[in-house]
Computed example of a mutant assay.
Amino acid sequence: MDIKTLIISPPPPLPVFFTMFLTIYLLAHFIIFRNWTPKTRPEAASCLISLTHGTPAAILAGIAIFSDPKHHFASPNTRFQNSVLEYSIAYFIMDLIHYLTFYPTDVLFIGHHLATLFVFVTCRYVAFHGAYSVLILLVLAEVTSLLQNVWTLAGARKGDSEVARQVFDKMSVWFYGVYSVVRGVGAPLFVYRMVGFYASGVADSVVPRWLWVSWVCVVVAAISVSVLWVSNNWVELFRERGVRVEKGKKVW
């Protein structure tokens, strides 16, 4: 099936996407990572569905944006854009179930998933407009997904695998660097443009003010948490590298 056919064909319903992610999660948990420890197996299963969602979602979002020649912040959602939104909604519902099951006290990630679902669901089923801005934010959020999930999987096994430890160590600088640029520079610049457009009032008839303000609040909070998270990781990285230097070990 070519891209043009994919764009104009009816999108699969949300339950189909959810069933896909649920199936991948169960396969990962009970078959692919069955030899991992009970502590790391759920995290690995979550990483696998994140890998299935992240990079494909970023690519599909880019295609969905540029397949609409009249795209702008207040454009009506195209059928293909709605399909991409449903794809992401299904993933976040599945991963939210994962966190509620295995990490119910992880309020940061649970809150993140609920807030993200609010943005996607209201864009898809309430406003029916604004997918252009939401999908660009999705691209910015998921462009580092592949690096992050490989880094996370390596980190989960670094204690009992020398290969995993080396992968984790070598990836950390590159992953933190790319993540810092995307979340610390690219995302804030786009949100600035987004706020400028919606604050002008030209889209109030299709994207109510209360809705775009809530979107911006969610995105700013997510960016702030992301920057804080990667900043803490940078601090921890240099602390660990400093300790190794003191011990006379090669760290780079």
Results as ranks from 00 to 15, higher is better:
L26D: 13
L147M: 11
A127K: 10
V206W: 10
A164Q: 05
T40I: 01
G177E: 04
L6E: 13
R41E: 00
H129L: 02
S205T: 10
L6S: 08
F120P: 03
P104V: 00
C47F: 05
D169N: 10
F109G: 07
W174N: 07
H113S: 00
F168I: 00
K70L: 07
I7M: 08
Y87L: 11
Y198N: 10
V195P: 06
V191T: 00
S133K: 09
V178K: 09
S50L: 03
F102R: 04
A74D: 12
V191R: 01
Y176Q: 09
W36I: 00
G155L: 02
P38N: 02
A221F: 14
S205P: 06
C123R: 12
P69F: 13
P69C: 12
R183H: 12
A141G: 03
Q81E: 13
I31N: 07
T5V: 03
A222V: 06
G155E: 03
V206M: 04
I31W: 12
T101K: 14
V225C: 14
H71L: 10
C123Q: 15
H98V: 01
W252K: 10
S9F: 04
H112G: 00
P10E: 06
E43Q: 05
L211T: 02
V191S: 00
A115T: 10
S83W: 11
L6Y: 07
S133C: 14
S226P: 09
K39L: 05
I65F: 04
V163I: 02
K170Q: 04
G242F: 08
I136F: 15
T55E: 14
M20A: 11
K39E: 12
G155R: 04
F118L: 09
G155N: 06
I3A: 11
D204K: 08
I3H: 09
F120E: 04
A74V: 02
P13F: 01
A28P: 03
S180Q: 12
S224E: 10
K4Y: 11
D204N: 15
F128E: 15
V163F: 11
I8D: 13
V235G: 03
P188K: 00
M171Y: 04
T55Y: 13
I3P: 11
A74G: 15
T23E: 13
N232T: 08
A154N: 02
V181I: 06
L114T: 01
P13H: 05
V185D: 09
G155D: 05
N232P: 06
F17C: 11
A156H: 10
Y125L: 10
I32S: 12
T105C: 08
A115F: 12
I97N: 09
G248V: 01
I110A: 09
F17H: 14
R165N: 09
L51W: 08
S88G: 15
W234L: 02
L27T: 05
M94I: 05
Y125F: 14
L117Y: 08
L147A: 07
V207H: 05
A57Y: 04
P11A: 06
Y25D: 09
A203T: 07
L140H: 05
L96R: 05
P42L: 00
G177D: 06
Y91H: 02
P12E: 12
H113I: 00
Y192P: 02
A221H: 12
E162P: 03
G186N: 13
V227T: 08
V245E: 12
A131S: 15
